[in-house]
């Protein structure tokens, strides 16, 4: 479970990126985080992996007390969270297989374990046949699936994706969201920051909207489709992000 109580995050230069956030995300939930550029969404993901620390308030992720987390515990925290970024962050000089295996090596996994687990995860994301390819020769959608495989390979409880389809053709994006939905069914909490309102509306999951560092709406999944966002907000966001 992820729990934020009155959390604020102010950058050293004085930018108040998040203010008085109260938020609870249950295990195995699927959450969309939306909002304009500069709203504080990325800052929220950074808090979740302790890349930035809360300036005020309390924050818990499973057993980790994030507001007073010791440095040496950060690696352990990050092994329970898989991160996926807009820019993929892959090694272009390593094969698909090596990219995924690297995450297991980093945590000291046995070679035999790696040999078993990596192909399994690659087939899960539909890239088993590309294991020996290099990422820089692959499409955005494929590269993001490598990144998802890497995030998944150490079997974390939580997957956080910060605008995973931001650099991907709209046609390919659907496959990424499908994949994240599938992973969610494998008992993993999924947090997806996105601008893709079509997808947000299509999937009917919980949607947290951040504006100016505040949560302005938190809409749970409903049987009926979520109400559409005001039109002007849509335009502004798309314009700002590109």
């Amino acid at each position: 479970m992820i729990e934020l109580k009155n959390v604020s995050m102010i950058y050293p230069n004085g930018n108040a990126a998040l203010r008085n956030i109260d938020l609870t995300i249950e295990d195995n939930e699927f959450v969309f985080v939306v909002g304009q550029s500069g709203a504080g969404k990325t800052t929220l993901t950074k808090l979740l992996i302790a890349e930035e620390r809360v300036s005020d308030g309390e924050m818990y992720i499973n057993d980790f007390r994030m507001h007073r987390l010791r440095r040496y515990k950060i690696p352990k925290l990050r092994r329970s969270i898989g991160m996926v970024f807009q820019d993929f962050r892959l090694f272009d000089n390593k094969t698909v297989y090596e990219n995924v295996a690297f995450a297991m090596r980093v945590v000291g996994a046995r070679p035999s374990e790696i040999k078993k687990r990596v192909p399994h995860v690659l087939s899960l994301v539909g890239l088993a046949h590309r294991a020996k390819s290099y990422p820089d020769k692959m499409s955005g959608g494929e590269r993001q699936r490598i990144a998802i495989a890497r995030a998944l390979v150490n079997n974390p409880d939580i997957i956080i994706a910060d605008e995973p389809t931001g650099n991907i053709d709209p046609e390919m994006s659907k496959a990424i969201f499908e994949l994240l939905m599938r992973i969610n069914k494998m008992d993993k909490t999924i947090i997806v920051v996105t601008h893709d309102h079509n997808m947000v509306n299509y999937y009917n999951k919980r949607v947290i909207k951040i504006e100016n560092g505040h949560i302005v709406s938190d809409t749970p999944a409903k049987a009926a489709p979520a109400p559409a966002e005001p039109e002007h907000a849509d335009k502004e966001e798309e314009g700002a992000e590109q």
Binding site: I49, R71, Y72, P75, K76, L77, R78, R79, M83, R89, F91, F102, A103, V106, V107, G108, R150, N154
Partner: peptide, 16 residues
């Protein structure tokens, strides 16, 4: 630095 950043995101310890 990029490699190191990735290492840290996937939970590498400082000594690693």
């Amino acid at each position: 630095r990029e490699e190191i950043q990735i290492m840290r995101y996937v939970g590498a310890t400082n000594s690693f």
